[in-house]
Design a protein around this nucleic acid. Structure first.
Length: 830
RNA sequence: GCGGGCGUGGCGAAAUAGGUAUACGCGCCAGGUUUAGGUCCUGGUGGUGGCGACACCGUGGGGGUUCGAGUCCCCCCGCCCGCACCA
């Protein structure tokens, strides 16, 4: 039979195969994780970041889940007891906006989309344990958000304060710092403005040092850039706090500085214009000026405020601070370049050695005093500050010292007088978690005029959302919940008097900060999770998802787990042992978007090429962490390859019903070598997430088997059957439908997904001969086929007499011969 | 501005530990199967020169270390990402 005949006889029909196996698999239910403590299999937890149910699955999902599923299915093949769950991140704005448009309840839209996605996941053949599915908008889920909030509240990790917060004018809600991207709302792209509001926060800053320290554990297991981004975001900064007396005030004002060595160069003092301290210290005759300035500052969006090269602005407050090292009075200014929520909101300004201070000094004619001799030109004249190191000058007892010496000395001096101490500051701010929107978890607090903040008693949880819909949900700047008066007005749990519920809802990142723990016992009703099950399954062994969560979700989840650990609820302090960030699917060099009209519809792609070809395209196109440009990619090529794999199995089946386990040893040794090499290499490649190369190796195996069929031994050769069976198992992690069909053609019983990963025979991994490269002066001049065990001397001799070598030498004298048996000889001649 | 990463054929990309550069796929060329097209199969395909065996050049550019560099070191150029007045 020729290959062409076989093509005619066996047509690869992905659609028919999909329909057939989707039904059969539903019965087999192969991917259920076992909670049985007696189950001897090694447990493994693979998690894909759960989707937001905004519609049907899209191309990005197709890539992410193809990668995660390949790893999960590989683990199943290794015989592990794998937890591979799925759920939905189901609270959030799009549902609410859709509900307003359609005069409906957000739940209708949300649950309908969840059903759509669930069906798509099944068709996409992802190996989920469907018995554990959850949605964060289920009261059974979000009651535990409320429970956790109350535990945080008890521990003083949840608190309410007035703050100068990020406000999205379009979505009419506050945003966490992490949700402001380049001054714009992460969700809708609107420019964020600032507002002063009373809001709930999680005290994530209490864990800043732990978040930083434990990141070291993740080194080599998480992508470097994610760890780097988290470190930068936390922004630890070591410095010194120095107390400055203020004229006419009893209490000193503390500043934070990383350059205490330049203290003698401080020529003025700056307060954040919008800090309470600025208005307090302001001289009465300057009040109006300050107020006008602060109003101007607040009108600025973050974008404007952060514009580079913006001119420095500020107001002199009419008072002076006293430099503690020399009792020199320096003027106190208010300016917006000092931030109210970093350090103490006050700085000593050293214009000679800090560019921002210099810009300010030059704008307002303030003195510039050089106290570090850097050898560079005078900053007052060049306008360029000299932040570098050098010898201290004009600094009294510090003169002549280096930066390091000066810092040590000044800290001693200040500490002796009780005017300073070393200190650490973080860029990280507390997590603002309240939102003025409907479709989220109600904050379980009751405000009582008599008792103040009163937690909702545990037995009253969950606080279920009232049944608002349509126009009632429209954003008004206060939470829509406030309009549900029946819901809002309650008796105070403490005193029984009239009280009101808190009307804000939680940031949806609260939901996703612990969902991976809920999967371990999704129906548990005594707490957010069964600690026993969590102890067995968690932490997550491999977490697969996009890098867009490098800070937000991943930092929040790490914070949650640390708190839970301190509460005694988990034994681990890091939620995700390993992290794999897949790239994005783009089109024509750009992210897919409606406005560009370059969107690619996943459903159409699946209909056109079949699930397996799309899954294979996703893993073959590039390394998992790189973007895939759909314009550069040809799913047709994958259909072609899958057809070749399918025909291989079909030809083996047609050649005769050789029983499983036929002595493969009787077959073609050359092919067996390829097969076992493939097993060996593919195993290592998958372990390293090198999925694109893995697929290349499978293609080579198919080619080798086909060549064996065509060049003599034929499809009946036991080595060909072995190759076909191995291929079906290896292929099952990427292309489950085709693999299952091949497996059945080969006379094996479903499911190939649980067939077991093949073992490479070590005897077949030893090459019979290897190609030795012979170089002359580093250039390849000949090749020799030699035994792997060839002796160095024999190899040297063979190399020196190789024809290509003799020609290249042309009588030159040999200076040196480097032999790296058995692969290389380099002859140095001149 | 600060921090980090990346530059390999026409394209997506391979290259254990410094040892055959370009695996695999796309595209292209030629041939086979086919009434034809498509499918499928086989072979070829970095550049320049040569009928040819071959020779020279070649991993963004320049230098260095080494018997040997895509890989290590230094400088430069280009692109991408993160942070962005954090004292």
């Amino acid at each position: 039979m020729t290959a062409a005949d076989s093509a005619e006889a066996q047509r690869y029909d992905p659609r028919a195969i999909q329909e057939k196996w989707q039904a059969r698999w539903a019965e087999l239910d192969s991917f259920r994780a076992s909670d049985d403590p007696a189950d001897p299999r090694e447990r493994a937890y693979l998690l894909d970041m759960f989707p937001y149910p905004s519609g049907d699955l899209h191309m990005g999902h197709a890539e992410a889940y193809a990668i995660g599923d390949a790893m999960a299915r590989y683990w199943f093949q290794l015989g592990r007891n794998v937890l591979h769950p799925i759920g939905w991140d189901a609270f959030g704005l799009p549902a609410e906006n859709a509900a307003i448009r359609n005069n409906a309840h957000p739940a209708d839209w949300t649950y309908a989309n969840i059903e759509t996605q669930a069906e798509s996941f099944k068709r996409y053949a992802v190996s989920f344990d469907w018995s554990r599915r959850l949605a964060t908008c289920d009261p059974d889920y979000y009651r535990w958000n409320q429970w956790l909030f109350l535990r945080f509240y008890e521990r003083d990790l949840a608190y309410r304060k007035d703050g100068y917060v990020n406000w999205c004018p379009k979505d009419q809600t506050v945003l966490a710092n992490e949700q402001v991207i380049n001054g714009r709302c992460e969700r809708c792209g609107t420019e964020v403005v600032r507002r002063t509001l009373t809001q709930w926060y999680f005290r994530i800053t209490s864990y800043a040092d732990q978040l930083l320290a434990d990141a070291a554990e993740l080194e080599g297991k998480w992508p470097d850039r994610v760890l780097l981004m988290q470190r930068n975001w936390i922004g630890r900064s070591e410095g010194v706090e120095v107390e400055f007396r203020i004229e006419g005030r009893d209490e000193p004002v503390t500043v934070f500085t990383t350059r205490p060595d330049t203290l003698y160069g401080a020529t003025f003092f700056v307060l954040a214009a919008d800090s309470p301290l600025a208005s307090e210290l302001c001289a009465p005759d300057r009040r109006d000026q300050l107020q006008a300035y602060v109003e101007d500052v607040r009108k600025l969006t973050d974008i404007e405020r952060q514009a580079t090269g913006r001119e420095k602005t500020g107001v002199f407050l009419g008072v002076h601070a006293i430099n503690p090292v020399n009792d020199e009075p320096i003027p106190v200014w208010a300016a917006d370049y000092v931030l109210p929520d970093y350090g103490t909101g006050a700085i000593m300004a050293v214009p000679a050695h800090d560019q921002r201070d210099l810009d300010f000094a030059l704008a307002f004619g303030l003195p510039v005093r050089v106290v570090v001799h850097t050898g560079l030109a005078d900053p007052a004249e060049t306008g360029v500050a000299t932040p570098g190191e050098g010898e201290l000058v004009n600094s009294g007892p510090l003169d002549g010292l280096s930066k390091g010496e000066a810092i040590t000395r000044i800290v001693q001096l200040l500490a002796g007088k009780g005017l300073g101490r070393t200190a650490v500051n973080y860029r990280l701010r507390d997590w603002l978690l309240s939102r003025q929107r409907f479709w989220g978890t109600p904050i379980p607090i009751i405000h009582c005029p008599a008792c103040g903040e009163v937690p909702v008693p545990e037995e009253d949880l969950p606080v279920v959302l009232p049944d608002l819909r349509g126009a009632d949900l429209a954003p008004k700047g206060v939470s829509p919940l406030a309009a549900a008066t029946d819901w809002v007005n309650v008796a105070c749990p403490k005193c029984g008097g009239a009280a009101k519920r808190d009307t804000d809802t939680m940031d949806t990142f609260v939901d996703s900060s612990w969902y991976f723990l809920r999967y371990c016992s999704p129906h548990y009703d005594q707490g957010p999770f069964d600690a026993e099950q969590v102890r067995r399954w968690a932490p997550v062994d491999l977490y697969v998802g996009g890098v867009e969560h490098a800070i937000l979700h991943l930092l929040y989840s790490r914070f949650f787990v640390k708190v839970l650990h301190d509460m005694g609820l988990t034994e681990f302090r890091e939620p995700f042992t390993r992290l794999l960030n897949q790239g994005q699917v783009i089109n024509g060099g750009k992210a897919m978007s409606k406005s560009l009209g370059n969107g690619v519809d996943l459903g159409q792609q699946l209909a056109a090429h079949g699930v397996d070809a799309i899954r294979l395209t996703m893993v073959f196109a590039s390394p998992p962490e790189d973007d895939i440009d759909w314009a550069d990619v040809k799913p047709e090529a994958m259909v072609k390859f899958l057809g070749r794999a399918y025909r291989l199995a079909a030809d083996v089946a047609a050649a005769g019903p050789a029983a499983a386990g036929t002595a493969a040893a009787d077959g073609s040794v050359d092919l067996r070598r390829v097969t076992h090499h493939t097993i060996d290499e593919v195993t290592r490649l998958i372990e390293a997430y090198r999925l694109n190369v893995t697929v290349a190796r499978l293609m080579e195996l198919v080619t080798a088997a086909r060549r064996t069929i065509d060049t003599g031994p034929g499809a009946g050769d036991p080595a060909v059957r072995e190759a076909a069976e191995v291929l079906a198992v290896l292929l099952s992690v990427f292309a489950p439908y085709t693999a299952e069909e091949c497996w059945e053609l080969l006379g094996r019983e479903a499911s190939v997904a649980k067939a077991g990963w093949p073992q490479a025979d070590p005897d077949l991994l030893v090459a019979e001969s290897v190609t030795c490269v012979v170089q002359v002066n580093g250039k390849v001049r000949d090749r020799l086929e030699v035994a792997p065990s060839v002796a160095e001397d024999d190899l040297r001799e063979a190399a020196l007499s190789a024809p290509g070598v003799i020609r290249a030498l042309g009588g030159q004298s040999i200076r040196k011969v480097i032999v790296r048996a058995p692969k290389l000889v380099n002859i140095v001649a001149n």
